[in-house]
Design a protein around this nucleic acid. Structure first.
Lengths: 149, 149
DNA sequence: GTTGAAAGACACCATCC
DNA sequence: GGATGGTGTCTTTCAAC
């Protein structure tokens, strides 16, 4: 992982459909060497996949919220499965502190938050926070590596 | 937005580098009509961009945490800017509840969590939770639209 | 890591259903 | 709304350096 790799990642993060040629042009390297670097980044698992950013709001899921889940009686595994099976869950982490999991939901209506919580309440308590606005998404990987503050 | 659009989104979510040809083959439609649908999804802003999933752990940022930020004296704007300028912030939302913002950080060392918090403490109080493991990332958009539970 | 060539895949357009 | 076929461009890949 050197500067060139980071620049490759940064460009692909901005546009994953760049051709190897175009990518090579942007970072002033030949196409074959860029191709090899990209392949290695994939093999190492640093590039986990090529995907699109989907605007869930515009797809009809305008409400985002965070739910902190505190499991009762060690029912972690059950909660984990309920969460992992629900497509409205955008992300979920096991965390330290008094809660056990943090979940981000995106839903069509407030009702769906209620039904999500109801699904969990036999096994856990929950605290829900509605997200008003998004301050930030995904930092540029170039800045992550080079801006030290 | 019909079934076909959702299938297009689902396929592109799995692999954004699919050519229009290949995409058309997978959903049994002709290339020109798929191209037009994709263009419209872009124009509507449902497809926000084409990007890569980067494994931050493998890039040397093994620690994830969530920080709940409670602003003092209405210093919201200052906090917003500090957060938005920091590349280690993966996401940040303004939320309801007793905290004002929730932030997800990914860092190289615990020290960096401390320095992030120190940056904020003149204007806010914080509660930090370390993320142990990731239970779930990004649901398939097909399931989001069609699995109703 | 670079260059150049060859084979193949691609998007796009016009046309038609 | 969707399908087909032709054209010219751009692509990746490979060998040689």
């Amino acid at each position: 992982m050197d500067t060139i790799d980071v620049r490759i990642l940064s460009e692909l993060q901005k546009d994953s459909r760049l051709s190897i040629r175009e990518l090579a042009k942007r970072i002033n390297l030949s196409a074959p060497s860029v191709a090899e670097r990209v392949r290695k980044l994939e093999d190492k698992g640093i590039i986990e996949g090529y995907t699109i950013k989907i605007n869930r709001k515009k797809m009809g899921f305008p409400i985002d919220c965070f739910v902190l889940i505190t499991t009762r009686n060690g029912e972690h595994e059950r909660i984990r499965q309920l969460v992992a099976d629900d497509p409205r869950v955008e992300l979920c982490y096991r965390i330290s502190g008094d809660a056990c999991f943090i979940v981000k939901l995106s839903v069509e209506t407030l009702d769906q938050i209620e039904s999500f919580i109801n699904k969990l309440t036999p096994y856990a308590t929950t605290r829900t926070q509605i997200a008003f606005s998004q301050v930030r998404v995904d930092a540029d990987v170039g800045r992550l590596m080079f801006d030290q503050n």
